[in-house]
């Protein structure tokens, strides 16, 4: 299973293994990692699963749909080039070793 490192909203590191096909949001919620709120349960309509993706993996991510792009505009923490919604990124083998940073605010 791919290994993912979360840096939670307090700056603490958590290394977890996630099954293929799970989303970054689900991995955070199920492992009780602070900072991902996921109000809408992964329906791409709340932007409270905003996270910053490690630079090296940006080109390995699934492409962003228009809906996600729109929701990210409403995210509370600043949007950067590394911004994605955790519920819209599914774990693949290519993401093994990924580091995900969670902003302080959602």
């Amino acid at each position: 299973m791919p290994q993912i490192t979360y840096i939670d909203s307090d700056g603490n590191k958590h290394q977890v293994e996630l099954p293929l096909g799970a989303t970054i949001m689900e991995g955070a919620v199920q492992n009780d990692i602070k900072g991902i709120i996921a109000e809408c349960g992964g329906s791409c309509m709340c932007a409270t699963c905003h996270c910053y993706i490690g630079e090296k993996y940006l080109d390995k991510l699934p492409e962003m749909e228009e809906e996600e792009d729109e929701m990210l505009e409403g995210a509370v923490a600043p949007r950067t080039e590394r911004s994605r919604l955790g519920c819209q990124v599914r774990i693949s083998n290519a993401l093994d070793g990924l580091v995900v940073e969670i902003p302080q605010e959602q």
């Binding site: 689900e26 809408c40 329906s43 309509m45």
Partner: peptide
């Protein structure tokens, strides 16, 4: 919310729509 969206179309399963 996912009940009429991802859960209905099968893209989200039970354990992925739990709050916590």
């Amino acid at each position: 919310p996912p009940l009429s969206k991802g859960y209905l179309d099968g893209s989200q399963q039970k354990n992925s729509i739990m709050f916590r």
